[in-house]
Write a protein that binds this DNA or RNA. Structure first.
Length: 192
DNA sequence: TCTAGGATCGGCT
DNA sequence: GCCGATCCTAGAT
């Protein structure tokens, strides 16, 4: 399991290194494990696309201002939850958005939550879909990923993602952010 | 209080 | 590939 110091580095480094790691969700309905394939870095007060741009601090973004290694969950478009991992350190409100992954365990449970009509490929290939598949909501905001019994954890099983398979791309859905919309802060593992 | 807009999804063409 | 749904959040009054 990844410890606090993993998250206490620059957001871009944490984002890149999260690729290939295992996101483990424990829940009364059963456990689900997802291998991360796509993430985005959000660089805090200097990043026009980030919720904390310009030093904005509200009840919604409060966890981003806290200690690294906690989970920041927010609602977009009034209906979809998005999962983020807080990076760097207290007072530096940066985070990595978890966009996509591949289900490694708990496939039946994911299918039950996502609906039987959903194709295998599109079960967890978006931030809102991933949260639905893992039953993550705003109620999970502030969860400490580094706590031993945490219901959400991130683990390293030794699988390395070679640099040649990582693509650096612009972030999605932030056209309002001016030139920051072009910053290559999205990291994706290309399929074989 | 009121209003505008959004780190998306899924259905339809 | 395009478009509408849907309602929370933040900032303005």
């Amino acid at each position: 399991m990844l410890m606090r110091d993993f998250y206490q580095r620059t957001t871009e480094v944490v984002a890149r290194e999260l690729l290939g790691k295992l996101l483990v969700r424990t829940h009364v309905e059963g456990d689900v494990v997802v291998r991360l394939t796509e993430v985005e870095a959000y660089l805090g007060v200097g990043d026009p696309a980030c919720h904390t741009f310009g030093g904005r601090r509200t009840t919604r973004t409060e966890t981003m201002w806290g200690e690294a290694g906690h989970v920041y969950v927010y609602l977009v478009y009034g209906l979809h939850s998005c999962l983020n991992v807080v990076t760097v350190g207290a007072g530096q409100p940066e985070a990595v958005l978890i966009r996509s992954g591949v289900v490694e365990e708990g496939l039946d449970l994911v299918r039950a939550r996502r609906g039987s009509r959903v194709g295998e490929r599109s079960l967890t290939d978006g931030p809102g879909k991933l949260c639905r598949a893992l039953a993550i909501s705003r109620a999970d905001d502030g969860t400490d990923l580094c706590a031993l019994e945490a219901p959400i954890r991130i683990c390293d099983d030794g699988v390395e993602v070679p640099e040649g398979r990582v693509r650096h791309l612009p972030r999605v859905g932030i056209d309002y952010a001016g030139e920051a919309a072009d910053w290559p802060l999205r990291f994706r593992v290309e399929p074989d």
